[in-house]
């Protein structure tokens, strides 16, 4: 049975699209047929992060409106056969994302895929609500910072009251906390909320901690999901999070300051 996973946060700029791309890539690497959908109508960006911006012909809204069929719009990733990208439209009509249409498209995707990753827009408006409405599982992307934590709490409340599972009195959407842009040296100095602080405040299970890492910007510069960069701390942290999502036990890495060797201090970071 296909699983619909929404990547959401409330606040913008915390790493939703980076996470959606990395998570979808990670699931595909583990052999699961995965599609990642951009729900941010009007502000398409997933295509750039996935590196397929020049291959977009038809989009989500075209398929909803019946102007194209699903297989015309899906873009197959060139690095992994299990991975597909479903770009959104650049239209300024924000009501184009009709709920019945989305429902129909998701039903069709469920026939073909194991995982359907929905990259939510920021905010709590129509697009964000539509992205989370059909979710079986939600990954709440949070930065260790007050406004992000507050907005995550708001989104958790919305998932509990306005998702389809809530409306139908079905088992609730499974919630996972993903802490991103974590900076262990600053945490050690008491300048940043700790993993434990955020876990305690939001009280949902922790899926992973992604350290602040140069590799994230490098990945977006080149249009490569960071999970494909398995040498980088962020890439490895995402692969760990995917493994935990699939039910494996993995120790949390990158939560303590890295001990830098004299060699590294003298000759720069590897």
């Amino acid at each position: 049975m296909a699983k619909v996973v929404v990547i959401t946060s409330g606040k913008g700029g915390v790493g939703k699209t980076t996470t959606a791309a990395a998570f979808a890539a990670g699931l595909a690497l583990r052999g699961h047929k995965t599609v990642v959908i951009d729900f941010d109508v009007g502000l398409r960006n997933l295509d750039l992060i996935m590196g397929c911006e020049r291959r977009v012909v038809f989009d989500f809204i075209n398929v909803i409106n019946g102007d194209a069929n699903l297989n015309q719009a899906l873009i197959k990733d060139k690095r992994n056969d299990n991975l597909f990208i479903f770009p959104t439209s650049q239209t300024r009509d924000k009501d184009a994302l009709r709920r019945e249409g989305v429902d129909r498209v998701l039903d069709e995707l469920r026939q073909q895929f194991d995982y359907i990753i929905c990259d939510s827009p920021a905010g709590i408006e129509h697009g964000a609500i539509t992205a989370l409405y059909f979710a079986d599982s939600a990954i709440i992307v949070t930065n260790p910072e007050v406004s992000s934590v507050r907005d995550s709490d708001r989104i958790i409340g919305i998932l509990a009251s306005r998702s389809r599972r809530a409306e139908r009195n079905e088992p609730p959407v499974e919630l996972h906390l993903l802490l991103t842009r974590y900076d262990p040296p600053r945490v050690a100095k008491g300048e940043m909320l700790t993993v434990e602080d955020v876990k305690e405040i939001l009280s949902i299970p922790l899926l992973g901690v992604i350290p602040e890492s140069e590799s994230v910007l490098r990945a977006s510069n080149t249009g490569t999901p960071v999970a494909f960069d398995s040498d980088s701390p962020a890439g490895r942290a995402y692969l760990d999070a995917v493994a935990r999502f699939l039910g494996e036990q993995r120790e949390m890495r990158f939560v303590k300051p890295e001990r830098r060797s004299l060699f590294r201090v003298l000759f720069g970071r590897a």
Partner: peptide
């Protein structure tokens, strides 16, 4: 007093309030 401790305290108070109203 570390600023992270202040952040945690402030968040706990504001969220308790907002959850009650939700």
């Amino acid at each position: 007093r570390h600023s992270a401790a202040i952040a945690k305290e402030r968040l706990k108070i504001v969220l308790a309030h907002e959850r009650a109203g939700r």
